[in-house]
Design a protein around this nucleic acid. Sequence first.
RNA 1: CGGGGCGUGGCGCAGUUUGGUUAGCGCGCGCGGUUUGGGUCCGCGAGGUCGGCGGUUCGAAUCCGCCCGCCCCGACCA
Length: 589
Amino acid sequence: MRMRRLFGQTLRESPSEAEAISHQLLVRAGYIRPLAAGIFSYLPLARRALSKLETIVREEIEAIGGQEVAMPVVHPAEVWQRTGRWYAIGAEMGRFTDRTDRDLVLAMTHEEVVADLVRSEIQSYRQLPQLVYHIQTKWRDDPRPRAGLIRVREFTMKDSYSLDADWEGLDRQYRAHYQAYFNIFHRCGLDVIAVASDTGMMGGALAHEFMVLAPVGEDTLMLCDHCGYSANRQIAGFAKPEAVSELPLPVTRVATPGAATIAALAEFLGIEASQTAKAVFLVGTIPEGEQSVERFIFVVIRGDMEVNETKVANAVQAQSLRPATEAEIRAIGAEPGYGSPVGIHDALLVVDDAVVRSPNLVAGANEPGYHLRNVNYGRDYEADIVSDIAAARAGDSCPQCGAPLRAERGVEVGNIFKLGTRYSEAVGCNYVDAGGQSHPVIMGSYGIGIGRTLACIAEIHHDAQGLVWPVSVAPFQVHLITLGPEESEAAVVADRLYAALWEAGIEVLYDDRDRSPGVKFNDADLLGMPLRITVAQRGLKQNSVEIKRRDLTEREFVPLDTVVGFVKDQIAILEGDLAQRVSSVPYRD
RNA sequence: CGGGGCGUGGCGCAGUUUGGUUAGCGCGCGCGGUUUGGGUCCGCGAGGUCGGCGGUUCGAAUCCGCCCGCCCCGACCA
């Protein structure tokens, strides 16, 4: 590609709205342009990089048996109504109507459509297992797009769907994806970790997220350096410090004026926070058939811990949670700041397992300025649900080995879900087994955010001058620049070299513009192609050109007649380095 | 949705507090010249309903009201 013909230009300064480094660089270097919040156009440079990324994805998914399909972006509402998600998902879903007023949905994901497709195509166990995938545009009307391509509303996703007759088959396909995903990300030059994750709106039994560790990430991961435990903070467990064992003492009422927080209470009574029970008041939206109802959720956790709302939502099967209002709190017989599980009514009582094991806690008295000493679970109150609902924090003990956990930020670039039969049952996609019995197909779903992955690569692979693409996803392998006026010897030689390199199958971006050397060098650094060839008088005196790797500082003069071979060797070296990153990763739940 | 910031040629900004000729600057863009190993230098030039609507005023980029958009933090998030 000749740069004077390239569509899109570089910017000397990045637009003020860009904050994330990948966002700044991709915009400055002329890869992407914003159209609206969370909606981008991809210019030729980005499109080429994305194509390479998609090729890697296709190779790895087809290597585990995937067959590419293409499913629609616009879906009739009925398929989403059948699985209930039309009702369960709120404003995030793009809805509109056609000219005859039929409800339509903009694809957020394709479980429904796959299930519908499978219903017509799969009848027998003989047709299973299957793995279909596509790379498709999705729309999620995210309330807050951010950080350029990291979190957008319109995005491209690879999603594959496994179809099996038995759970062992699902397990095989799940594990195959687990390894394939590592292969994909390693080939792109990304280190990722797989963490156990919440299943969220997808539902299902088990899920992993593939995370790139980066400060720009919006997920918090809890990691154990000792045993390798890793989980999204939303579901991370931890070994809770045990309470002292004591015989239950009689409940006594104690005046605690002004002690409306755990810290104030502990100080006032001269006790540890772990000897208190904290009440947290939430209202959950809980589905009941096609309707959903609001229920008051009274959460009790030990004073030294914090509530993890994802865990609470999962424990009570809530679609969403919100803080309760003061009026709602009083309506169930509790008192803000002095709440107690003793004596409340019309609330779903959820108690953390550590509270159950902790005797003689100080809880509120449900009246202002008073607490109760020696409140004991089982004797003084009983929960509707006892569960782990505490948030893991950095420094907490690993649930597997007890070593301290570390917290890190991460970007979710991929995820894998064991869906089971949720969608196949809802849509009625069944197969007949060898004995003639009908069963729902067992499904898995597996996503990779293509644009987000590209942004993560940029986030990791850059320096002060610009992007530094891994050769596997670089839009071009070589950035050829020529210094000196048009019609000069350098220009003539560069023209010839450009043709020779393409002839040899090497992808070259050729800066043939009539610009000063500084501009060309700076743009080459900004655009980030792995190899730079400079044709100028300085080298031509020895009949050679300068070649430099973008990721190294050394430059080398290479005789003109050996340039093509030299470049091929360099590309092979770069590709080899990436290939070395690919390794088999032990599976862990 | 809550909190904060911003909206002036393609990009980055000044001007708004205290209303007053033709709204400036840098980059970029076009033309001519110059230079050719790290964003050369000189000259000429094109390009803006100052986010939108309404109001106040003799007069609005500037003051007031409503609306829209973009960014950041939080809520949210496969």
